[in-house]
Design a protein around this nucleic acid. Sequence first.
DNA 1: TAATTAATTAAACGTATGTAGAATATCGGT
DNA 2: ACCGATATTCTACATACGTTTAATTAATTA
Lengths: 238, 238
Amino acid sequence: MKKPPSRSARSPGRPAAGKDIVGLILDVGEQLFAARGYSGTSVRDIATHAGVNQALIGYHFGSKTGLFEAVFKRRGLAIVRRRLELIDALEARRPPPTVRELVEAYLVPQFDMKRSGPAGLAFCRLQARLHNEPEEMAFRLRREVYDESTKRYIAALERTLPNTDPEDISFRMMFLIGTYLYMLADVDRMDELSDHRFDASDLDQLVTRMLDFLVGGLQAASSLNRKGAGTARARARR
Amino acid sequence: MKKPPSRSARSPGRPAAGKDIVGLILDVGEQLFAARGYSGTSVRDIATHAGVNQALIGYHFGSKTGLFEAVFKRRGLAIVRRRLELIDALEARRPPPTVRELVEAYLVPQFDMKRSGPAGLAFCRLQARLHNEPEEMAFRLRREVYDESTKRYIAALERTLPNTDPEDISFRMMFLIGTYLYMLADVDRMDELSDHRFDASDLDQLVTRMLDFLVGGLQAASSLNRKGAGTARARARR
DNA sequence: TAATTAATTAAACGTATGTAGAATATCGGT
DNA sequence: ACCGATATTCTACATACGTTTAATTAATTA
């Protein structure tokens, strides 16, 4: 009872080559995870939107977690790679980089990604929302993907601001990260809060404004009395 | 076939008065929503942890959404109330407030909440993660709870910084919000990135550091050429 | 060209989910 | 002492979930 090689719709069996199904699943997963979060997205949803059987996701990625990880690393590692190239270039150069140049190099790969089209935009949102996802996943991915590059930039900032307490620089780097992640998340809060007077959709302008703000913050004087009780605990640990 | 008024474990029927079950459910919901997000938390989980039947949540709050909303508003509105009291006081005073005083008044209710115990801490996390939750809920809650107070602070900053373009102030307020939300989320990133050298658990110190950074950013000079093409679109809309 | 490997679908398993209905017991007012 | 309103549990429904197994077909290798 053999059927003729059914050329209709969808049938089991290996397809006649061609399209990059894995890439397609990654694209769809990126989109849906970005829009609804990890827990809010089902494997079935992704499979349906990709026009593919659910089981295929298990086959290619092992599990839902595996798919998320693959989605995240695909572009996350690319961003970090560029971030590292940029700091390599800055540090090889004479004169040494300014604070503004360092911050710009740190941010630009992110906002280029955001600008690059719907996929990049979705990824940025996904990334900005990572710390909402189940902790064991979020912790590991953040550490695996971002830590190295961020430490490089902290070290470079310490060299560029030799008179600033390294502790201050580490804190301020966290503040900086908070700021740009919020902007990446595309929360569209600007529109509400300014009563639709202002426009945050011009990314070049947004990055310029952020640079002004962040460089101002990084270079601000510290009002902590270094010899007082305030930092005693932390200093004792060094 | 009437049973004697069973005094054992749990039985249907109105209980013999006493404990604030609604408050208990809110507390447990707060804790779990904060830890696992809206989609990651099930009504059953909350009911079980509260030692209560699932149906009771439907009875008191209508739906899962209703419970989340109640959890969020309970402390969210309290924070905003305090924020408004503080700015009322500052604006009634002579001389008028400084930038630092305004930012401090905006932040302090949040970090007092975070300091206030496990419930306040959970709420802060929940709040910082709100923009990850299903959009229709997040949008409405943010608008209902925060918009009024934030607009008041933006207006006050415009008065305190009369030579700064209001557009810049609105943007920078967004940057400020991104920074403090990231710190509220308790991401514990500081520890990883500084290789455990620094301590972000002293909240007084953290707020002082944030104030230095944020005031520096708010007061930084703007590098946008106001007459150039960069802001033309936004200006035309005013 | 035969045998093996790779990629896909179909179907199902067991469990978890949000919500609703019915039963029950206590409270507050009369 | 009664009665309606209120607060609670029990039970169940219908659906949605992540994963697994078996069947099926093309590609690759021998």
